Computed example of a mutant assay.
Amino acid sequence: MGKARPGPPDDSNVGKRRRQQSAENSEGDEDTLLKQNPFASLVTNPQDQSNCSTVNLSDGSGRKKQPPLVVKNVNFSTLSTGIAECGVNPVYKLTRFGIKVLCNSSQEFNQVQDHLKMCSYEYYTHDKPGERPYRVIIRGLPLAEPGILQSQLESEYGLEAQAVHVIRRKEESEPFYLVHFLKGSTTLKKLREIKHIGSIIVQWQAYRNNRADVTQCLNCLHHGHGTRNCHLKSRCNHCGDAHTSDQCPKKSESTKHCANCDGAHSATDPSVQNTYGLDSKRQNQINRGGSPPIKGQQHQL
């Protein structure tokens, strides 16, 4: 009789050997990949909490995104050379509004701003992170120079106001004062303990900006930044010339001249701004997920 032929191999044993070989190959591939991976040192066993460490993405300087400094009416070469001599290396962006200077830290921001002030350059910026002032409203006082009220608050009540502005609104017959304090320096409860300033009874109220439009500077009359951070030349809201509105020699004249578009209206006239369809453009931009256009963009900036 001939020899019996060997039967077919056991499928269970073949599958076992293949799985074992695949596991060995995968372990080798994993070791190779980890050796080639520059971030392999960050891989830790999630169960080994004793060896885990938190990866800190901060540079330790408390760096936060700084607001831009927008410089106008100066040559880029002159500006960048002067800033470089201060030991600062910011990023620049040329825009139709001016030269935008983007700093990497709060220290760089302060250095650049000091340089701009020293050179008397025209520029504007915005509040730094965490430095937005605490704003309150004072009602009941007669119209006077804001500086007088600011000095009175400090001398009589020990309140150091950063700024004081007179606010006039068409829907209100009497003006009121908007006062800026350093954030955390006082509270509305403490302020309301002051029942009168001088011999006049006053009311203290929290400031709530319920206006839907974009901020307009009352110094240069442009849109997109506030008065407090504006270092551009003053422009008159009545005649459009290069002086403050309070110093206008043409106040008695009924004809007004817009400092932005040369129209026969004031630069802050909301009815004229609405005719440009700026509110709908702003909302459409927001709906598309982008940043809203600066209100007044059809004016000359």
Rank of each mutant, 00 (worst) to 15 (best):
K3R: 06
A4Y: 08
R5F: 07
D10H: 04
D10G: 00
R18P: 03
S22F: 15
A23H: 08
N25Q: 14
Q36I: 13
A40T: 12
C52A: 11
S58Y: 08
G60K: 13
R63I: 11
K64M: 12
K64E: 15
L69C: 13
K72C: 10
F76T: 11
T81H: 13
T81W: 03
G82P: 00
A84Q: 10
C86Y: 05
P90Y: 11
Y92D: 13
L94V: 12
F97L: 14
K100I: 03
K100A: 15
Q107G: 01
F109L: 10
V112S: 03
D114M: 06
D114E: 15
M118W: 05
C119W: 00
Y121V: 04
E122Q: 15
E122L: 09
H126V: 01
H126R: 09
K128R: 15
K128L: 13
R132N: 08
P133M: 09
G140C: 05
G140E: 04
L143C: 04
I148A: 10
Y157S: 02
Y157H: 14
G158S: 14
E160G: 06
Q162A: 06
Q162I: 09
V164A: 06
H165I: 05
R169I: 07
K170G: 10
E171T: 14
E172C: 10
P175H: 14
Y177H: 10
V179Q: 00
G184E: 14
S185A: 14
T186P: 00
T187W: 06
I194F: 07
K195H: 12
H196D: 01
H196A: 15
G198Q: 01
W204P: 09
Y207R: 05
N209E: 12
C217E: 06
L218A: 11
N219A: 07
G224A: 01
R228E: 04
H231I: 02
C236P: 05
H238E: 01
G240H: 02
D241Y: 02
H243W: 06
H243S: 10
T244F: 02
P249Y: 07
P249E: 14
K250A: 08
K250Q: 15
K251V: 09
T255G: 06
C258S: 02
C258A: 04
C261E: 10
G263W: 08
G263L: 05
G263M: 00
A267S: 15
D269E: 11
P270V: 10
V272Q: 10
L278P: 00
S280K: 13
R282C: 07
Q285H: 09
S291W: 07
G296T: 07
H299L: 06
L301S: 04
